[in-house]
Amino acid sequence: MSSSPDRPSEQRLASVRERLDYEMDRREVLRTLVGAGYTLGLARWLGVDDVFNAADGEVPVVTALVRSNPADPWSLEPQTTNVPAAWYARVRKAFELNDMLAQSTITGYLGSAVVPGSYDSGSARITVEVSVEPTELRETLEKLADGILFNVKSINPDDFSEERPVGEPRYLRNPEQQGVPAGIICESQYSIATLGAPLYDPDSRSHYFSTAQHAFQAAGETVGSPVSLPFENGEQSELGRVVGSYEVADVAIIEPTGYYQPHGVIAGDSTYDVRGQYTRLGLADLVARGEPLHKVGGMTGQTSGTIQGIDAVSCLTSRTCRHGQLRWGTETDMTDGDSGSVSFHRDEQADDGSVLIAGFNNARTWWPGQSYVWGISAYALTDHHGLHF
């Protein structure tokens, strides 16, 4: 049998690990790993025969990037699982159609999201929001569907409610501890927000605090803005200064400037160690199995809810559409001050209770007929900006 340049898969995986180990092209490698997970799974690294010969009609896919050494944030390796080939093909098709929608010039298009079905159903659908009567659009989409279901809904984002859940600020429990966890409040010159999990830059080998960029929106030039850590007694200490501002992603990264340093844990009902992040197909796998996400907001604390859409596009809040969004939970899972928190799920292939990050929480629905929290997915942040959890 003739050999294929794309085989064997083990050699390809070993090659990727080797490039990571020797610190060569780290951002490029990381993006390759993430892309392999959310675009074509391990099929990118396998030959065609390997995919179609998978046992019991299954396909191996990359569902997460996880640290092989818990103490080393640069030791990310792909975590894989097998999924039904029919389900995988349908979900991949839904991703492609959703990309087409996002790049189209459909009148009144406000956003869309992919909702994978269960593994047994082998299905997927796309929810589409428009500001016009959807009848004609629905007919057009059904011609392109190729087995993908569409749920088109007309919404009016000008109809809004100011009702929000009430919460209590969550402060650093011990002001003497140097490592600051995610899930507590921080403060800009203009508002409070929630500290997300630490973000890492593989190019500079730097680590940062993270939160929502819109907490600094009144600052004009966000970079350089100070961020403080408030305490329950009314005092506060400087946490750091913003060194990276990503308006479309709605993420700000903060370089530590004093005593306090980012700590890779989330302080919720328990203390959760962060060990990596989900790929796009990893989120799809969670949806297929009905697994919930959790978040710890600086005001509302820990809540959980089901995923309502992945690889979502939102064109509601700015002139630039936001891609790679994650929708989950309900409106009650977020209030002012929770922005910047991260959604997460337990790493089911680990036995230490560690968690993987799904994405940020930056906004909630305010119009009738829909109810969820949304923000950029971890895989999209990595793909666009090279940062990872």
Results as ranks from 00 to 15, higher is better:
residue 282 G to N: 07
residue 267 A to C: 05
residue 267 A to L: 09
residue 306 T to D: 15
residue 311 D to V: 09
residue 296 V to T: 13
residue 327 R to N: 10
residue 368 P to T: 01
residue 286 L to S: 03
residue 263 H to N: 13
residue 315 C to T: 12
residue 358 A to K: 00
residue 364 R to G: 14
residue 287 V to M: 09
residue 299 M to E: 05
residue 331 E to C: 12
residue 344 F to H: 06
residue 279 T to Y: 00
residue 335 T to Q: 10
residue 334 M to Q: 12
residue 356 L to P: 04
residue 282 G to A: 05
residue 352 D to H: 00
residue 341 S to N: 10
residue 349 Q to L: 14
residue 275 R to Y: 14
residue 320 T to R: 14
residue 306 T to E: 11
residue 278 Y to L: 15
residue 351 D to M: 05
residue 314 S to Y: 05
residue 271 T to M: 08
residue 345 H to L: 06
residue 374 W to I: 11
residue 292 P to W: 00
residue 344 F to K: 04
residue 339 S to K: 00
residue 355 V to N: 05
residue 266 I to F: 01
residue 310 I to G: 08
residue 290 G to F: 08
residue 365 T to N: 04
residue 323 H to S: 11
residue 362 N to K: 13
residue 285 D to I: 03
residue 265 V to E: 11
residue 290 G to R: 00
residue 366 W to N: 14
residue 264 G to V: 02
residue 369 G to P: 07
residue 291 E to A: 14
residue 291 E to H: 14
residue 300 T to G: 09
residue 359 G to R: 02
residue 268 G to D: 05
residue 345 H to V: 10
residue 266 I to Y: 01
residue 341 S to L: 11
residue 326 L to C: 09
residue 316 L to W: 10
residue 329 G to V: 04
residue 295 K to G: 08
residue 319 R to F: 12
residue 297 G to C: 03
residue 368 P to K: 00
residue 347 D to M: 06
residue 307 I to H: 04
residue 324 G to T: 05
residue 336 D to Q: 15
residue 318 S to W: 07
residue 321 C to F: 09
residue 285 D to G: 04
residue 325 Q to G: 12
residue 355 V to C: 02
residue 307 I to K: 02
residue 333 D to T: 01
residue 302 Q to A: 10
residue 273 D to T: 15
residue 270 S to W: 10
residue 268 G to A: 05
residue 356 L to C: 07
residue 319 R to G: 15
residue 284 A to H: 01
residue 343 S to G: 07
residue 305 G to M: 00
residue 362 N to S: 15
residue 338 D to P: 00
residue 314 S to V: 09
residue 283 L to F: 06
residue 300 T to K: 06
residue 289 R to P: 07
residue 374 W to H: 14
residue 324 G to E: 02
residue 341 S to I: 06
residue 291 E to C: 12
residue 331 E to V: 11
residue 282 G to K: 03
residue 296 V to P: 07
residue 300 T to E: 13
residue 302 Q to V: 05
residue 346 R to H: 13
residue 285 D to Y: 07
residue 282 G to I: 09
residue 285 D to F: 01
residue 319 R to H: 12
residue 370 Q to M: 06
residue 267 A to F: 08
residue 367 W to F: 15
residue 267 A to N: 07
residue 359 G to P: 02
residue 314 S to D: 12
residue 315 C to S: 14
residue 333 D to E: 11
residue 339 S to N: 02
residue 302 Q to I: 01
residue 285 D to E: 09
residue 309 G to I: 03
residue 319 R to Y: 10
residue 332 T to G: 13
residue 339 S to F: 05
residue 268 G to T: 07
residue 360 F to S: 11
residue 373 V to T: 06
residue 296 V to A: 05
residue 268 G to F: 01
residue 327 R to Q: 15
residue 288 A to D: 04
residue 329 G to W: 05
residue 347 D to H: 13
residue 371 S to V: 02
residue 269 D to L: 14
residue 353 G to C: 07
residue 297 G to A: 09
residue 327 R to G: 08
residue 284 A to N: 00
residue 365 T to Q: 11
residue 312 A to K: 00
residue 307 I to C: 03
residue 308 Q to A: 11
